[in-house]
Structures are given as structure tokens and as C-alpha cells.
């Protein structure tokens, strides 16, 4: 009996360990080939690429506001199209905070990787809930400034203020520093596709029941662009003040 008592604990421990180990289908420490180090230019997983190179500005969580446009908006995808997104990803947007992606253009990505990112963005974007027949073209010339002021007043002033310098719901859209950092195309994209993550409606929903026409979009962008001027140099102001 005493002999049995001596052995019962080790035997039970062994049985319990074996039972627990039987539940393992993988040894945690065994390295798997897919976990092996890859050169940055050899990574082909969309999620890894997007997380490493895009998420900083375009965010990972599509349900929350991002500093730059969320890249899973159906209307934006329909408006810009794969080709434009590919071109922007490859070349960046000079003069703005969107850097070039391609290694040849100063970025860190190969052509294949850029393709994977763009395809991934397209694939994960949900389809439009309803077909948009009156979608303006992605690229267009600037319209008429004076008419643009009127269109702005009608569609945008409710949030951005009558003169665009900020209103009850949104800040200034005519600040020279802001305009210095965005392109006309970016203004056009924002007017058409809105920024749903920030609460800005698209061109169909600025005013209930009214859809902005192609001309009105062009005119608003022209009026906004007309506010471009050399922005103040804050450092200069600082120096003067210090003097």
C-alpha cells in the first residue's frame, strides 16, 4: 500500500501531462518556413504590406477616422478606379504627404508589391450599395471661380462657413497652408467622394435631395484653388516676434 502511495503521484502527473500534450497539434517552438525572415522586397502578403507601409496614414480600423482617406470606400474606388490608385501608389503625389511606393521612385516597394497592395485594396472594398450613374470623371479641368463660389455656398458653406474659413461643423478649407499641402485633384476627390470617416458627405448627399453636377464640382474646386497664396512662414513670424 505504501509502495502504491509512493508511485501514485508521479503516475498521475505523467498521465495528466500526456493527456494535456495529446491536445497539441503543433510544437510551439518548432519554426515554420512561413515564419522565416524575408527580405522586405520579398514580402507578398497584402496584410503585412498594408500594415507596414499604408496603415500609418490610412489606418487599419475602417470604422474609425483616419488622418488620410480610408482605402475601403466603395464610392472612392468607383470614382478613382484601380489605375489611378495604382499610379498614386507607385509614384506618390509630389508636393504632398503621399510618398512614392516604387523603389525606382524613391520608395521601398517592388512593382509586384505595389500590385499586391492595390489589388488587396480593391478586393477588400465592399461593392457600392447602389449603382451611381452620375459619377463625375476622376480627372477634369478646373471650372469657373465665380460659379464655384455660389456652388460652395450652396453645398459646402453649411459646414465650412460661407467664406470657407470654418463653420459650425468643419474647419477652414481655404487656409493657404492647407491648400499648399493638397493638390487640386485631392480637392476634387474629397468633394466627390467625401470623407465618410470624418462625417463629410459625398457629392450626392451634401444637400438632401440634390446631387452636385459635374460642372458644380469643377467650379467648387476652382473656387477653392483660387485661394492659393504663399502661406505665412510661422518660423519667420517667430523670429520677428523674438526680435
Amino acid at each position: 500500500m505504501t509502495e502504491l502511495k509512493r508511485w501514485i503521484f508521479p503516475v498521475l502527473a505523467l498521465a495528466l501531462s500526456s493527456f494535456l500534450l495529446a491536445g497539441c497539434d503543433k510544437i510551439p517552438g518548432k519554426p515554420e518556413p512561413e515564419e522565416a525572415y524575408q527580405r522586405p522586397t520579398e514580402v507578398t502578403d497584402f496584410n503585412v504590406l498594408y500594415t507596414t507601409y499604408c496603415a500609418g496614414c490610412h489606418s487599419l480600423d475602417a470604422s474609425k477616422p483616419a488622418a488620410a482617406r480610408q482605402l475601403n470606400e466603395a464610392l472612392y474606388l468607383a470614382f478613382a478606379g484601380r489605375e489611378a490608385i495604382l499610379q498614386i501608389t507607385e509614384d506618390g503625389v509630389p508636393g504632398t504627404t503621399m510618398p512614392a511606393g516604387l523603389i525606382d521612385k524613391g520608395g521601398k516597394l517592388t512593382e509586384e508589391q505595389v500590385g499586391i497592395i492595390v489589388d488587396g485594396i480593391v478586393e477588400r472594398t465592399p461593392p457600392l450599395s447602389q449603382e451611381v450613374t452620375d459619377l463625375p470623371p476622376y480627372r477634369a479641368e478646373l471650372g469657373r471661380i465665380e460659379e464655384g463660389r455660389e456652388a460652395f455656398s450652396r453645398y459646402c458653406a453649411g459646414c465650412h462657413g460661407e467664406d470657407g474659413s470654418g463653420g459650425p461643423k468643419a474647419g477652414s478649407i481655404v487656409d493657404p497652408a492647407y491648400l499648399e499641402l493638397v493638390t487640386n485633384q485631392s480637392l476634387r476627390t474629397t468633394v466627390v467622394a467625401g470623407r465618410t470617416d470624418l462625417g463629410m458627405p459625398d457629392f450626392r448627399n451634401m444637400v438632401p435631395g440634390e446631387v452636385m453636377s459635374d460642372e458644380e464640382v469643377e467650379d467648387v474646386v476652382a473656387w477653392l484653388a483660387s485661394h492659393r497664396e504663399e502661406p505665412d512662414n510661422p518660423a519667420q513670424g517667430n523670429e520677428e516676434r523674438n526680435d
Binding site: A55, G171, D175
Partner: peptide, 15 residues
């Protein structure tokens, strides 16, 4: 390039 700006620091900001 990989760490998003926290969303509460984005919400309600001007352009």
C-alpha cells in the same frame, strides 16, 4: 508608416 494616428486625435480636427 505602420502606426496609425490614434483616431481620437483625428476626430473633429480641421483640414
Amino acid at each position: 508608416s505602420s502606426e496609425p494616428t490614434p483616431s481620437h486625435m483625428i476626430d473633429g480636427r480641421t483640414p
